[in-house]
């Protein structure tokens, strides 16, 4: 369809949500949300705790089914497909509450992603992929530890590594920077950029506004399950509606935090919570 396939200029929709609603016992966690993700872009998603961000990731990844609405991936409706089918289509996701295979070591954890997320890899090829990915996310030296022996930050890295090993077309990152130190946040941002440079579309859910603003092409804001803004980072962050609904008085706090580099990122992340 499109003559030019290079990511920055081609605007081809890879993922689309159409009027998606998810209710848990009457209350909507995601409420009539529609948006489209273009191939090759980094879309940031922000919103206060309980805004429905994780639920939305699950609706795309398939661990939850929408109450109504449609999820389209590369033009195909996927909202009735089980998670493993979506994985095979090229959707990789991480969990905010990390979900390691506790009894397997880190290398095997990642290897499972390559073994089952891709087609036709042998055991040793999958292990080889695992080693590459571990080096990329900075976990290589912990490859022999067990899944439950990691720090919070390393568990997040493991989540990313496993999803990355699947060689996804779109990567859904659910708060992978929460709990990282500012230096680690910088590394994480660099990692996301490099993944994106390799042609992977990224949807990044985050609390840390600074991180989102610097890495995203566009930002989408959820509040009480509704989409209240969707635009470039600068526009969104100066949108009075967003400031009022989400940042509010805490915005000042954040500015303050940015002036004080000694304060860990997680501190003001918590302030936003």
């Amino acid at each position: 369809m499109s003559a030019n396939l290079s990511p920055p200029t081609a605007s081809e929709t890879i993922l689309e949500l159409q009027h998606v609603t998810k209710r848990y016992g009457g209350l909507p966690a995601v409420d009539d949300v529609s948006f489209a993700v273009q191939r090759g872009e980094v879309l940031g998603v922000i919103g206060p705790n309980g805004a429905g961000k994780s639920t939305m990731v699950s609706l795309i990844g398939g661990s939850a089914a929408p109450t109504s609405g449609k999820v389209l991936f590369q033009g195909q409706a996927i909202n009735t497909l089980p998670p493993h089918r979506r994985a095979h289509l090229g959707i990789g996701r991480t969990f905010q509450l990390t979900q390691p295979f506790t009894g397997l070591d880190i290398r095997e954890n990642v290897m499972v992603g390559a073994f089952f997320g891709r087609r036709g890899l042998s055991r040793s090829q999958a292990l080889h992929v695992a080693d590459e990915v571990l080096a990329r996310v900075g976990l290589a030296h912990k490859a022999t530890l067990k899944g439950d022996q990691l720090t919070v930050a390393d568990r997040k890295r493991l989540e990313v590594a496993r999803a990355l090993a699947m060689d996804p077309r779109i990567l859904l990152l659910d708060e992978v920077m929460a709990g990282l130190t500012p230096a680690e946040v910088t590394d994480a941002i660099e990692l996301i950029r490099s993944i994106n440079r390799d042609g992977v579309t990224v949807l990044v859910v985050e609390h840390i506004v600074r991180a989102i603003a610097s890495v995203s092409d566009r930002v989408l804001v959820l509040h009480h399950g509704r989409k209240i803004a969707e635009d470039t980072p600068d526009t969104v962050l100066s949108d009075p509606k967003v400031i009022e609904a989400y940042l509010g008085e805490r915005y000042a706090k954040q500015k303050q935090a940015e002036k004080d580099p000694a304060q860990p990122a997680s501190e003001w992340m918590e302030g936003l919570a």
């Binding site: 089980p82 493993h84 994985a87 390691p100 295979f101 397997l104 095997e108 699947m166």
Partner: peptide
């Protein structure tokens, strides 16, 4: 490997492409 992954974390197994059922 699929069986062990299911045992260790069924949700993660599904998400990584294992047809758990």
């Amino acid at each position: 490997y699929a069986l062990v992954a299911i045992r260790e974390n069924e949700q993660a197994a599904q998400t990584l492409g294992i047809a758990t059922t």
